[in-house]
């Protein structure tokens, strides 16, 4: 990860953290890329507790929790910080059921996930199983749909394509989404 200036925070890469988790919980890691390690949903709670309590990791601080709509599946991204050891990592978990995405809640491990999971539920529609108070946060009860999903309010010609190219940009083939 290119960083801005000499970083003091030790960023534990996804591959590294996946390796450590794999040692403790074989089969808990679904896949690992440099940015983050993806956990299996059913092993999430114990892995998180391990990440929090392990003396070498001590990720006591859940920096950020958010959900991403990857079109084929949803993923929930956890950015973890260890305040005492000054290190950081990111883990992910996938929810592949588009109609009813379910992910175990980590409120039991980090209470700070409470509001952030509610936000992800509110805007992305991901049900966090085990969350003590999973209600809409910003939108009113009874709001129809999950606005941050890519297919929210699909137009007549399919999903609104967004900004694919800059105005006047050459039409050469694009990588990624295009």
């Amino acid at each position: 990860m290119p960083s801005n200036g000499p970083s003091v925070t030790k960023a534990i890469a996804g591959l590294d953290i996946a390796h450590r988790i794999e040692q403790k919980f074989p089969g808990a890691v679904e896949e690992a890329i440099p940015e983050a390690a993806t956990m299996k949903a059913d092993r999430l709670a114990e892995v998180c507790a391990f990440l929090r309590d392990d003396p070498d990791l001590k990720f006591e601080f859940l920096s950020s929790l958010t959900a991403v709509d990857r079109l084929e599946y949803f993923e929930v991204v956890y950015h973890l910080t260890s305040i005492r050891l000054n290190q950081m990592t990111a883990i992910k978990v996938k929810a592949s059921d588009r109609e009813n995405p379910r992910v175990p809640s980590v409120t039991g491990v980090w209470v700070g996930a409470n509001l952030q999971e509610r936000e992800a539920y509110d805007l992305m529609g991901i049900v966090f199983v085990g969350h003590p108070d999973l209600r809409r946060m910003f939108l009113w009860d009874g709001f129809d749909g999950w606005p941050l999903r890519k297919d929210y309010l699909v137009g007549p010609g399919g999903r609104f394509p967004g900004l694919e190219r800059f105005p006047g940009e050459s039409q050469e083939p694009l990588g990624g989404r295009g």
Binding site: S64, T66, V68, E164, R165, F166, L174, G175, R177
Partner: peptide, 18 residues
């Protein structure tokens, strides 16, 4: 914190504000 995902297009694929 800003969590950005780029898919290579001119606009962020996901833009999350912590």
């Amino acid at each position: 914190g800003f969590y950005l995902i780029s898919d290579g297009s001119p606009a962020p694929f996901r833009f999350h504000i912590r």
